Amino acid sequence: MSGEGEGKGAKGAAQRRKLGKVDIPTVTMAHGGGGKAMHDFIDDLFVDAFYNEPLAPLEDQARFSIDALARYGDRLAFTTDSYVVSPLEFPGGDIGKLAICGTVNDLAVGGATPLYLSCAVIVEEGVSVDLMRKVARSMAATAVEAGVEVVTGDTKVVERGACDKLFINTAGIGVIRAGVKLGVELAQPDDLVIVNGVLGDHGATILNARGDMKLDTEIFSDCAPLHGLIGALLEAAPNTRFIRDATRGGLATVLNEIARGSEVGIEIREGQIPIRAVVRGFCELLGLDPLYLANEGKIVCVVAKDEAEAALAALRAHPYGKDSVAIGHVTDERPGRVVMTTVLGGRRIVDTLVGEQLPRIC
């Protein structure tokens, strides 16, 4: 894509010219070489999947009206992330869905309405064209659900062995709603800590999909765009202090970031933390702690005590938040520490991992 643009169907710009097609089964170095093969590759995979008006001119950049952006709020939010998950397809999603959801959620947790994304792909020579087409269509479908447009991008093809099949980078622009103020430093004693459902599904799914240990009961990734859920939360609880998606490092890492950032203590109750029995059992077999497993459809929220009931009601009314629950609260005791009361009545410190217990989960 290299500024060559991507698109969502053979409309608009695609109607003004005939789209190129790829007629061989695998990606070759020619598909990144700047010639007709590359343009056909971009047309077939990305222009056919992502068409939208900012993309249609196929310039080296997407162009936006400042007035149009200002309708959504008073501040811009900008983020980027790269996706190198292995395997590329897994129960509940694939690398394309993950790339859209991850960037949309990174914007949404800051109180922004996600609007525009870029997509840059690094493809290894020899990858199936049908797989690439499937990933592009998955991205397009997820973008529609999330209400965003993929408006610019880049394509690079590298020699065999130079990358692991496919890497994707997405960057995103959103506009923060007027009056919204969220930050890791804003948690206060007596605030409640809320999660929007069961934790650890994504991390367990990726490990299981690699075949390291195949479960009889299949686990599905929770990968989902959470902009709508977060919008409902902020409408019901406008004084929400903090929201973060619990991706790499899981719940434990996010809670420690809050404790350090706000110089407060956080107390959670093990019995209140929603984890599927199959995920808990999987972790026990492999010696993993589900509190550190990655999620791709779960947020951790710190909400003012007097707005907690309204926040939970709004979250539970949304399909991606029906299992929302308060798992603990903020305290002025033990600043910088996260302490969990176990189901046996004991207490343990929940610290940050030095490394990563499960690599390449996003």
Rank of each mutant, 00 (worst) to 15 (best):
A232C: 06
P225N: 02
V157E: 09
G197R: 10
L107N: 06
N295V: 08
G174R: 03
V144E: 14
V158L: 13
E149Y: 03
D191L: 02
D332M: 09
S138I: 11
D94G: 12
S65F: 03
V279H: 05
V22A: 03
T113M: 01
K298E: 11
K36L: 15
E270A: 14
G261V: 04
V121E: 15
A70M: 09
V264C: 12
V303A: 02
L186R: 15
L45V: 13
L358E: 11
P25M: 08
L88A: 07
V123C: 11
V354G: 00
H202S: 10
L215G: 04
K36W: 02
L76S: 09
I206R: 04
G228S: 11
R276S: 14
I361F: 11
V129S: 03
E53H: 08
P87E: 08
G211A: 04
R360Y: 12
V193Y: 04
V135A: 09
R334D: 13
V148Y: 03
R260W: 10
H227P: 00
A311C: 02
T103G: 06
A141I: 13
N208V: 01
D40V: 06
L226G: 08
E185L: 03
V195H: 00
R137S: 12
R133I: 02
K18Y: 05
R360W: 08
M29A: 14
V195F: 00
A224Y: 07
E89C: 10
F90V: 00
G32L: 04
A143L: 06
S138Y: 01
K181P: 00
G346Y: 00
D94K: 05
A311K: 00
S86Q: 15
E309M: 03
L288R: 06
R248Y: 12
Y72W: 14
V254Y: 01
P25Y: 08
R16V: 10
L58K: 11
E149V: 00
S262A: 15
A146W: 02
A204K: 02
A141S: 13
G228M: 01
F167P: 00
C101R: 03
V22G: 04
H329E: 15
G102V: 13
E296W: 10
A77L: 14
A62D: 05
L251I: 09
V104H: 02
A120G: 13
F282H: 05
S118Q: 06
P319M: 05
E257T: 00
V180Q: 05
K8T: 07
R133D: 14
M213I: 13
A56D: 15
I24E: 14
Y83A: 02
G228D: 09
S118K: 05
F167Q: 13
A49E: 05
R347E: 15
A56Q: 12
G345K: 01
E53F: 11
P359S: 02
R16Q: 15
